[in-house]
């Protein structure tokens, strides 16, 4: 399983905080995971193809080419606005 988390405005728009995705032991990249999530609905498609979407794999910022494995924590969120 890949533990997928959503934060801030993205979490609210998807109305989803956490989503578990079965990867059946196969290694995928982030772009492939996003592809599976986008296929859920037109809302998910629209929200997850934003150009400014950020991604963290096991709590480190990564590009969409990063490899995701079974047991990983993957997070998607909008640009950060702290400070």
């Amino acid at each position: 399983m890949i533990n997928i988390l959503f934060f801030a405005a993205l979490r609210e728009r998807l109305d989803c905080e956490q989503y578990l995705l079965s990867c059946e032991g196969n290694a995928l990249n982030v772009a492939a995971v996003l592809g599976q999530l986008k296929s859920r609905s037109s809302l998910w498609q629209q929200e997850l193809e934003r150009a400014d979407l950020l991604c963290a794999l096991n709590q480190q910022l990564v590009p969409l080419s990063a490899t995701v494995q079974d047991g990983d924590e993957l997070a998607f969120f909008p640009p950060v606005t702290g400070g």
Partner: peptide, 20 residues
């Protein structure tokens, strides 16, 4: 730019996420 914090403003006109 790097630390994962997000601000949401609660205003007289409603609630808004702050844009980067």
């Amino acid at each position: 730019n790097r630390a994962p914090f997000w601000k949401k403003e609660h205003t007289a006109n409603g609630d808004y996420w702050v844009a980067a």
